[in-house]
Design a protein around this nucleic acid. Structure first.
Lengths: 151, 151
DNA sequence: CGCCATTGGTTTCATTATTAAACCATGCGG
DNA sequence: CCGCATGGTTTAATAATGAAACCAATGGCG
């Protein structure tokens, strides 16, 4: 099954999905971003089967999203920590979170929300901007083939 | 299988994933955002089995991400168009795209990139900001339980 | 030290999803 | 009316997922 391998696609979205584009992987990263490090923490939080948690963690380590640290609190157990690459998944996750809050919750419904520690207020909506800071509407952009020279 | 249903989770990320969190759905939305509307267009672009494309389209319609329009160009065929809800998936997709460009491509490698139509330059990086516009670093935020009153 | 519970997995097997391929119904051009 | 394209659905093989059993190595406690 899943013979389709997107890791060589020319679309960055497709490649991203081949790394972290399944159900559990993104939730693992979400939990890791909130400070979880241990197998059992993830397992309790996600409630998924342990073998698949195990497989997902291994894949995320292989893809350099997580690393296994030998220990940290003295115990001989291993910890899973986000790499720099993994930490930058925060933005996509926030985008997904905001979308979900906007469209999938009743106004009065309880939700987990991302807030500024300083004042406890929710973070601002993510916005699409031009390189010079102008806000861009959906019609102002298009996808194009570029060979680099990112500014 | 897949007995786990996240649609009632208190985490907006989990709920989002239950709507659009599988391989093909997000790619369908990506293509829809670039103007595709017809079954065969999606099928050609994605190269996935037609029955699963059919199932995904139906699910996206059911979840109000797409609608089926009776026609538009005269032919009696149906079109799949993004709803407002669907269109706002652009931001999460851009976030994913930028992450992929940053971490999954060699510098010189060809890629599909999102550019400002006006000048052809890539759009700015999405950034996390406080409600008053301050840029926030990862350590400045936390997730918290809120019952609404979004500002 | 000795014993049991917990952590961190791996293995096994049943169940479910994905896929390719065949099939079918309508529309549409000539 | 013939033939091909569109827009699917059905069927059967294959692959991924999930629950539960199993296992090895700590860690805590007396």
């Amino acid at each position: 099954m899943r013979k389709t391998d997107l890791s060589g696609a020319s679309c960055p979205i497709a490649r991203s999905l081949s790394d972290i584009g399944d159900w559990w992987s993104l939730l693992i990263v979400r939990d890791a971003l909130s400070g979880m490090t241990r197998f059992s923490e993830f397992q309790r939080s996600l409630g998924c089967a342990r073998n698949i948690l195990s497989a997902r963690l291994a894949k995320l380590v292989e893809r350099d999203v997580l690393t296994v640290a030998p220990a940290s609190d003295g115990s001989a157990y291993t910890e899973y920590r986000l790499t720099e690459k993994g930490k930058t998944l925060r933005v996509p996750l926030v985008a997904l979170r905001q979308w979900g809050e906007d469209h999938l919750f009743d106004a009065a419904e309880e939700r987990l929300s991302l807030v500024d520690k300083r004042d406890g207020l929710p973070v601002a909506r993510l916005e699409l901007r031009a390189h010079d800071g102008r806000t861009l509407s959906p019609d102002d952009v298009e996808t194009r083939n570029r060979s680099d020279a990112r500014t």
